[in-house]
């Protein structure tokens, strides 16, 4: 379990002078499932790269379990924060699925039965258990993305950070990613994910942080963030609330961020108030 705390975090890219983060304050408690959303360039990826030390703050600091991430190397932070990149082809190098998944835990010093179990669990969670000997480049794009996820899952880090995990996934792939997130949260792991898929965000996360211009503009439960009162703020970041929210809002049913919430409200309305 790991608490994450971001304090007045500012990041300015030296080459371009772009101020990607402009004084972010954020606290993520151990075991939380948090979605980071916002338009392209709002600072989401920059923020998560600070969590595992790939970027260092221009100002402010990041605390992992109370320890300043600035005093730790990326290799040390990798044992606590597992970051899955958006593009799997920018990390896959091994000749087999198994070797690719083993890479991370081996870097952390795992071996023997512990390594085998971690790899087997990660492959099973992502549905790749039958592909251990397959060359990763023989897998389709969506399965390579699941492989990248498996390779970080196998590291069994207390925090799992996912950058656009559902991009390029069909409904079955999205469901699998959602199951991985739920299983990780059930095991007490913290999950932070960047996503543009608002339906997925509403259904898989308990907290949504909306960013714009390097700042947090909304932070709350999916029910709060996707409620009609927040639509203007959401649209200012070029995000549309999930369809269920929009239908619920138009019908005056209150906040219905998920399909299940919308159906429940519709049923309540059809059955009328309990006498």
């Amino acid at each position: 379990m790991a608490d994450l705390r971001v304090e007045r975090l500012v990041h300015v890219y030296r080459e371009s002078g772009v101020r990607a983060l402009d004084g972010i304050d954020l606290e993520i408690r151990a075991g939380e499932r948090v979605a980071l959303v916002g338009q392209n360039g709002s600072g989401k990826t920059t923020l998560v790269r600070h969590l595992n030390g790939l970027l260092r703050p221009t100002e402010g600091r990041v605390l992992v379990d109370g320890h300043d991430a600035g005093s730790m190397t990326v290799a040390q932070l990798a044992a606590r924060i597992g970051l899955v990149f958006q593009d799997p082809d920018r990390q896959i190098f091994a000749g087999s699925v198994r070797a690719e998944v083993e890479f991370g835990p081996r870097n952390l010093g795992r071996s023997g039965a512990e390594l085998s179990a971690a790899v087997a669990d990660a492959l099973a969670a992502t549905g790749l258990e039958g592909e251990t000997a397959t060359n990763p480049y023989d897998l389709g794009g969506s399965r390579r993305k699941l492989l990248a996820l498996a390779s970080v899952l196998a590291m069994r880090t207390p925090v799992l950070v996912l950058d656009e995990p559902t991009t390029g996934q069909d409904a079955r792939g999205v469901e699998r990613v959602r199951a991985v997130i739920e299983a990780a949260a059930a095991a007490g792991r913290t999950v932070v994910a960047i996503s543009h898929d608002m339906r997925f965000v509403a259904e898989a996360f308990e907290r949504v942080v909306v960013m714009r211009g390097g700042r947090v503009v909304l932070d709350g439960s999916p029910s709060d963030v996707f409620a009609e009162a927040s639509w203007d703020a959401l649209r200012s970041t070029y995000l549309e609330p999930p369809l269920a929210s929009r239908i619920g809002g138009r019908l005056g049913l209150g906040s219905t961020p998920t399909d299940a919430a919308l159906i429940a409200r519709l049923r309540e309305g059809a059955e009328g108030p309990a006498s």
């Binding site: 790939l54 290799a75 990798a78 870097n107 970080v152």
Partner: peptide, 8 residues
């Protein structure tokens, strides 16, 4: 960056 994130 991706490999460092996996502990390299």
């Amino acid at each position: 960056a991706a490999q460092r994130a996996r502990g390299l």
